[in-house]
Design a protein around this nucleic acid. Structure first.
Lengths: 217, 217
DNA sequence: CGAATGTTTGAGGATGCTCAAGGGATGTGG
DNA sequence: CCACATCCCTTGAGCATCCTCAAACATTCG
């Protein structure tokens, strides 16, 4: 945690708050890397474009989270970041953040921790992708969102899915049709309820069990 | 890159060089996190144990690479690190590294870059797992090792696979049998040649094309 | 209101897993 | 040094999961 005086320093270097409308880019792959970004409200997706021109989703970003940490060692952003809905974003020039981190041990420490945490989260996702079947993946995806909303003090049982079914499928390595069928099935089992894009978790315990690593049968 | 004087500082805080024999642990999940580690020679694997007791591989570590970066924000290591062969490892107490980074801007910067790079590498792996079929995964795996050896000035066309087929399958989300069949097939196509665990890339160009993101047919 | 985009459902098929078995390599204790 | 156990690798046959293709409906937006 940062002290008030430190947060004040941070506020000073926040370049600007920017509003992105749905579909607008925070940055594109190839844009020169200059800043990392904190989501204040709304949500974004990160993706790359493969050599055959297909969108490859790498992550969703919710309020309170950072975008651009994967670009620190590069000249240019390696991915696109696009708003899934109207979103408010704060950008922080990285060179200034780095300089400030030298003077504020707590900030340096915090940055290391945030980056380390991102590494860990991705390892978890990798296991999800390499070990779990479709149902488990989707359950884990929902539980992951739930936990992230809870961490920010928002409801962990009811929230809005700002991404399309197609985005979810792309992210989880599943076909859109499979995602749609999963949702139907989990609703029939009364684990969740989805009306349009509002998701309500009916049985958090059961869903968590499904998401938890389990054997293949 | 660090200046000589900076490297000297670093050398001073390297706790010790440790030799690990095949099968020995560098650390176990749950061990208190105190240091990150640099591989001097040999190789290690990282893995977690899922709730049902199954080993879940998260990465391989080659000479010149760092282990433990995913633990910076935690009290304890979240994974196991086990030597795949006799290996030499340098451990660096993290609190001292952090302190030193405050005084050596280049070191701080380097740490940010290494961590950011790890985030990026994992995103690439995620895409591999969610988008590619078995052949593409294995080709990408071999190309990845090849590039990492090249970066360290070692041969990128011939190297030793210190991990078992089972480890590879676990890592790539494939059954051992599938890995074995893949190897047989790629040898018949004369893209690679494997004698025991010595791998020789016969057609780097073709293998690279196979590894590169391509459509599902 | 039409066009584009997103969602759902069905039918058939391919990829990769499971199960099964055999051979080879490595290591340990007698 | 051999016998035995264990681990690793390979190959085959059958099958399940999830993808592809196809079509219809819903929703959003200009």
């Amino acid at each position: 945690m940062l002290a008030d005086s430190e947060i004040e320093h941070l506020d000073n270097i926040v370049q600007r708050k920017r509003v992105l409308k749905k579909g607008e880019f925070l940055f594109k792959a190839g844009d020169p890397f200059d800043a990392i970004h904190a989501i204040r409200s709304g949500s974004l997706k990160s993706y790359t474009i493969s050599s055959d021109g297909i969108e490859q989703l790498t992550g969703f970003h919710l309020p309170g989270e950072m975008v651009g940490l994967n670009a620190v060692s590069t000249e240019a952003y390696p991915s696109f970041a696009k708003a899934l809905e109207t979103s408010l974003v704060c950008s922080i020039p990285f060179d200034r953040l780095e300089a400030l981190a030298r003077d504020l041990p707590a900030l340096q420490s915090q940055l290391f921790r945030v980056m380390s945490g991102e590494i860990r989260d991705e390892q978890e996702l990798m296991m999800l992708l390499s070990k779990k079947n479709a149902d488990e993946r989707f359950a884990a995806f929902v539980m992951n969102l739930s936990a992230r909303y809870r961490r920010r003090g928002l409801s962990d049982k009811e929230f809005f899915l700002s991404m399309t079914r197609s985005d979810i499928g792309n992210y989880l390595g599943l076909a859109v049709e499979t995602v749609s069928r999963l949702i139907t099935r989990l609703q029939k089992k009364e684990l969740i309820e989805i009306k349009d894009r509002y998701l309500c978790i009916k049985d958090l315990h059961e869903l968590s069990a499904l998401a938890g690593t389990s054997c293949h049968h």
